[in-house]
Design a protein around this nucleic acid. Structure first.
Lengths: 131, 131
DNA sequence: ACAGTATATAAGAACAGACTTATATAGCAA
DNA sequence: TTGCTATATAAGTCTGTTCTTATATACTGT
């Protein structure tokens, strides 16, 4: 299963977002997800398995609990894939920010995607992934 | 359809990668994709439609040709979603880079994800998305 | 107008994925 | 051991996606 397929499911995205705040027991995750999506415990467990099997999460048994934690590798792959498109927003925002910020030195290089960190200060009405 | 669902399909990812190099006619895209994936012209057309309908591509008619171009907005949304996980790789690379670069001042703060730009210089054997 | 090329849409078959309920496994506490 | 809790797996159903072939639409050149 490709990374993007794994991330295609809103439940799994939510689980990862939960785990982003630190490791959580399967039960804790299940409670939140059940409340928000109204699905069964096995359904959540199956999603956790998909995350495990595809390297998005690692598990650490602690008694009868399973502690899940984010494993970043596949997410980073996604980040890398996205690289080829960053120029599309860098092009615009850079042309703007860059030209303004610096004393306007020279026109920015052809389009070699110079690495400016993504600007999260523009929430874009990203609708918080509640989808 | 969520952005991640759109990106879940390898054909669509390939199409976007093609368009990343600049606008292409539907025909040009179709030729490449047919060769690589062995699917029919209508199949490619349907994928182009999904990209259109979900804001990943815009079309500009030119005679009997349709020129497709990347529309970055949804990709940028993905980039924004990824933001919450960047700390996981910044944490490691930073701990390494930071500790080495500076004269090793003090143990890094708990885990407050200080913003270092993604480092694309580590290709990660990402297998070029030929999947 | 006619034929040819470029692209899209329609309809249906095949398949994969995400649920469900039922049940198994395993640690813990009495 | 027995029973309770935490979690996983099994098996089956349902639905949405992705193909296929057939066909429609619309420019272009003769």
């Amino acid at each position: 299963m490709h990374a993007f397929d794994v991330l295609g499911d809103p439940v799994r995205r939510r689980i990862l977002a939960l785990l982003a705040d630190g490791p959580q027991s399967a039960g804790a995750v299940t409670d939140v997800v059940r409340a928000e999506f109204g699905i069964s415990q096995p359904a959540v467990s199956q999603h956790l398995r998909v995350l495990r099997d595809n390297g998005f999460a690692s598990v650490h048994a602690s008694g009868t609990r399973r502690l899940y934690a984010v494993d970043a590798a596949p997410l980073q792959e996604v980040d890398v894939w996205l690289e080829q498109f960053r120029k599309f927003w860098n092009q615009h925002l850079d042309a703007l920010a860059t030209e303004l910020a610096r004393g306007r030195r020279r026109p920015p290089a052809t389009h070699t995607a110079d690495s400016a960190p993504t600007d999260p200060s523009t929430p874009h009405r990203t609708e918080q992934d509640t989808v």
